[in-house]
Amino acid sequence: MSDLPARGGNAPAVPRPGAAVPRRGRTGSWAVDLAWFVTPLAVLVALWAGAVAATGVPTRVFPQVTDVALALWEMAVSGELALHLGASLYRVLVGSVIAVATALPFGIALGASRALSAFFSPLLRFSVALAGIAWIPIATLWLGYGDGAVIFIVWNAMFFALAYNTMLGVRRIPTSLLRSARSLGAGPWRLFWEVLLPGAMPSVISGLRIGLGYGWRGLVAAEIIATHAGLGYALFLAQTSFSTDVIIAAMVIIGVLWLCTDRLLLAPLERRTVRRWGMTSGEG
């Protein structure tokens, strides 16, 4: 499963003219960037408002922008928002921290040996395909309904994708790099921190992206099915009472949260490591 967009074949040895460099140069002004980001979304919201007003669709079915804003405001004031948001964030945080702490060492250990990685590669691919939502029935059976099961799902959804990509990343570190580090006197510990981990970084980051994507979806599904708090549960609750305004408010929050994760966590991580070092990484 090449979830990793590995490019090698057609990548020119010399930076392509007109590709990355000038674009980054042009985007020097962040205000222009922001405008390019906010304007389309604002237009979208305006279109939504206009369409609802023009077609006269019942707001029970398709709520007006103001209804959603009002629902959001009410949720915020009543403390419901904080409750659900807190529950969801807590689960994602715990689940992903455990996933990173377990998957990274595991993936690097597998990647360091050719035999191990050849053996585990099909197993991990199988597990990646299955990870996350398909585990919800068994997780709730084992751990009961509640935080435990949801955290398990988040961990499970991330673990395999992250371990697999880390392993691939380590396998792709050029042998010459390992040899030169060893000949410069690096021991196993040093090798791990100074060569294996940074060398696998592009792959690790795309593994994180994929894993968080699965984890986030797993979270929402698990919360709809198996809890009494969290954004997914809020969605479920609103659906049973046909409160479309609350449903859309919750969806918007979920979207914004993921964008924040991507922009505030993954993108800076990528910028500081992979981009800074001039290695490529999958944009996804």
Binding site: R217, I224, I248
Partner: peptide, 26 residues
Amino acid sequence: RKALWPILLFFQAIADIAWLPIVIVW
């Protein structure tokens, strides 16, 4: 591309499963 990119990102960000409740209503 530039105009649609943030919209794409945003819709991609609303995890698909979150659509299920509203879709059930519809």
